[in-house]
Simulated assay, not measured.
Amino acid sequence: MALVNASFLVLDAVDPEKLAVFYTELLDGEQTDISLDQVEIRGADGTRLAFRRDLSATPPLWPRSENNQQVHLDFLVEDLDEAERRIVGLGGRPVETKDLPGPHEERIYADPAGHTFTLRPVPGTAAEQL
């Protein structure tokens, strides 16, 4: 057994309960633990995230350099358009990226607390979506 095992990626938020609902719904997951200051979830694929209460948390203003990105999540999806509809329906928002370098089949979003994340097609599905 490994000496150290990865446990959770933890995102700070003013309202961790609200953020946990967003990611639980997005990842078809379940809440696994909740305490006064932290909520933990597990996605259907086993992804584990936690959301810690920080009343002074401010979202990064990515891609602006004066408030650099603090964390970045990537999610693989079968259908970018369907995933986008779900994200927006849950309270997320697209982040304008038309002038950024990189693959055009990536899409960047912000969750309700302002943390950015990227959707990328599952390898082998990118050509099908163009």
Score class of each variant (00 low, 15 high):
T58M: 11
D12R: 12
A13C: 10
F51W: 08
A126L: 03
L80M: 10
E96W: 10
R48T: 09
F22T: 01
F8K: 11
G89A: 04
D79H: 09
H72Y: 01
P60V: 03
I41E: 11
A13Q: 03
D45A: 12
T125P: 07
Y23M: 00
E84K: 06
E128P: 06
I41S: 07
G43P: 00
A83S: 13
L11P: 02
P94M: 06
V10I: 14
S65G: 11
P60T: 08
G91S: 02
I41N: 06
P60G: 11
L90G: 02
Q31R: 13
R42Y: 06
H115L: 00
I34F: 09
P112N: 01
D99P: 12
T47D: 09
G43Y: 04
A6Q: 15
S35C: 07
G89P: 03
P112Y: 00
G46M: 01
P59A: 06
L76Y: 13
L80R: 09
D33G: 11
L130K: 13
G114P: 08
L26D: 03
T118C: 14
L26Q: 08
L3V: 14
P112R: 00
G124T: 05
P60C: 10
L119S: 05
E30H: 14
L27T: 04
A110F: 04
L90N: 04
G92I: 04
E105S: 07
H115W: 02
G43F: 05
D37P: 00
L73G: 05
R48K: 14
G114F: 02
D33A: 13
T118L: 05
G91N: 02
A126Q: 12
E84Y: 00
V122E: 07
